[in-house]
């Protein structure tokens, strides 16, 4: 997996309304943010705030009602090669009828990558997430955390410079969650990819990110963008004991509390 640099991802005045007429429901209102190359940005907000909606707009899966998303000077109006997505529901996003390796190589086939190269990349990506010997298994033979790692491997093998992750660790136990968080940080450091991480967990948002974008209000907007000055080396125990971490955490929590969503 080569390193790839890419352009800055811009979100400009993005609004999204579901439905129309009397059933219209404005979820996002005038959201603007930037994600620079090789940065890890957390989008944090309560459930139902519209985080998934925002992420789907970022990936080009959903068209915003107004505003736009662009990568450098290219508009992102449909899914592009530079962006890979790890979905919230890994059970629904891995295909139970395909082996793990197939699940990972499958998108590459559409990209026109040759068979040998596909297998090679899949093996590399699976090794990167610590599942080098699971390629021949079926997803359902793996634990939840391992399945989520497969989904991450699929994103990595796609070799997109930008990885969007939607509450990727939401449905695994606490220990696995910490492991996956650290795995993600390591991969990001090694591969130099840009990551947008959506989460409702404030600890996770702060622990993982270079910058935290706090979403909230009704309809949802960007409440604040916070630079996390915790340095590059994070550690589940040390970092979380750090007083700066505690301060940031309380700060974000206050923001969210005072601007209830939905």
């Amino acid at each position: 997996m080569s390193n790839h640099t890419s352009d800055t991802l811009y979100v400009e005045g993005l609004s999204k309304t579901y439905g129309e007429g009397s059933t219209a429901h404005e979820v996002l209102s005038d959201v603007s943010l930037e994600v620079h190359p090789q940065e890890l940005v957390s989008l944090v907000g309560p459930s139902g705030a519209g985080k998934t909606t925002l992420l789907r707009c970022l990936s080009g899966l959903l068209e915003p009602t107004s505003g736009r998303v662009r990568l450098g000077d290219r508009p992102v109006s449909k899914p592009i090669e530079d962006i890979a997505v790890v979905f919230q529901d890994y059970r629904g996003s891995l295909m139970p009828w395909m082996r793990v390796a197939e699940n990972v190589t499958f998108p590459l086939q559409g990209k026109g990558v040759a068979k040998a190269e596909r297998d090679h990349r899949a093996q590399e990506a699976l090794e990167a997430v610590g599942l080098g010997d699971a390629g021949n298994k079926y997803p359902w033979q793996l634990s939840g955390g391992m399945q989520q790692r497969v989904a991450i491997a699929r994103g990595l093998a796609y070799e997109a410079p930008i990885l969007l992750m939607d509450e990727p660790f939401g449905s695994v136990d606490a220990q696995t969650r910490f492991d996956l968080e650290d795995l993600t940080l390591r991969l990001r450091r090694e591969l130099g990819i840009t990551i947008v991480l959506v989460t409702h967990d404030i600890d996770e948002a702060v622990y993982m990110a270079d910058r935290v974008v706090v979403l909230g209000g009704r309809p949802t907007r960007v409440l604040e963008t916070i630079d996390v000055g915790l340095g590059d080396d994070r550690d589940q125990i040390g970092t979380k004991e750090n007083h700066l971490f505690a301060e940031l955490r309380s700060h974000v929590l206050n923001q969210v509390r005072h601007n209830p969503a939905i």
């Binding site: 899966l61 962006i83 996003s93």
Partner: peptide
């Protein structure tokens, strides 16, 4: 079908025939 399936297909730009044969068909089987 799990709507997630379509999302995956779109996000990873799976060509439509491949989507039908390798995703929809097995899932509907």
């Amino acid at each position: 079908l799990n709507p997630q399936l379509l999302e995956v297909a779109k996000a990873y730009r799976i060509p439509y025939p491949v989507y039908l044969m390798r995703m929809v068909l097995p899932a509907t089987l």
